[in-house]
Computed example of a mutant assay.
Amino acid sequence: MSSTALYTDLSGYYDLMCADIDYPAQSNGVRRLNQLFGNNGSDHLDLACGTGPHVRHFIDAGFNSAGLDINQPMLDIAQRRCPEAQFSLQDMCAFKVDGPLDLITCFLYSIHYSGTVERLQQCIASVHGALRVNGVFCFNAVDKGQINNQSFARHTVEHDGSHFAFSSGWHYSGHGEQQSLRLSIEKTTQGVTQSWQDEHPMVAVSFAELQKLLEPYFAVQVFEHDYARIASWDGQSGNAIFVCVKL
Rank of each mutant, 00 (worst) to 15 (best):
Y13D: 01
Y13R: 05
C18E: 06
C18F: 09
S27M: 01
N28A: 11
R31A: 05
G38Q: 00
N40V: 00
G41A: 12
G41E: 09
D43T: 10
H44I: 01
L47G: 04
A48M: 05
T51F: 06
H54N: 02
V55K: 01
H57Y: 08
I59L: 13
A61Y: 03
A66S: 15
G67T: 02
Q72A: 12
Q72E: 13
M74V: 00
L75S: 02
D76P: 06
R81I: 12
E84P: 07
L89W: 06
Q90Y: 07
M92W: 01
A94L: 03
D98G: 15
D102N: 13
D102T: 07
F107H: 06
L108E: 06
L108R: 00
L108D: 05
Y109H: 11
S110P: 00
I111C: 00
H112Y: 04
G115F: 02
Q121H: 06
A125K: 00
H128Q: 07
V133T: 15
G135P: 01
V136N: 05
F137K: 00
C138T: 08
N140E: 15
A141E: 05
D143Y: 07
K144I: 07
I147M: 10
N148M: 14
A153M: 13
R154H: 13
H155M: 11
T156Y: 08
D160K: 15
D160R: 14
D160W: 04
D160Y: 13
H163I: 13
A165Y: 08
S167W: 04
S168N: 13
S173F: 13
S173T: 15
G176L: 09
E177T: 07
Q179K: 09
S180C: 15
R182I: 11
L183H: 00
T188K: 10
G191C: 14
T193C: 15
Q194P: 06
W196R: 08
Q197N: 14
D198Y: 05
D198T: 13
E199F: 06
E199V: 09
H200V: 12
F207A: 06
Q211S: 04
Y217H: 09
A219I: 06
A219P: 02
V222K: 05
F223M: 03
D226Y: 02
Y227C: 01
Y227R: 01
A228S: 14
R229F: 07
R229W: 04
I230R: 00
D234I: 12
G235F: 09
I241W: 03
F242I: 09
K246H: 07
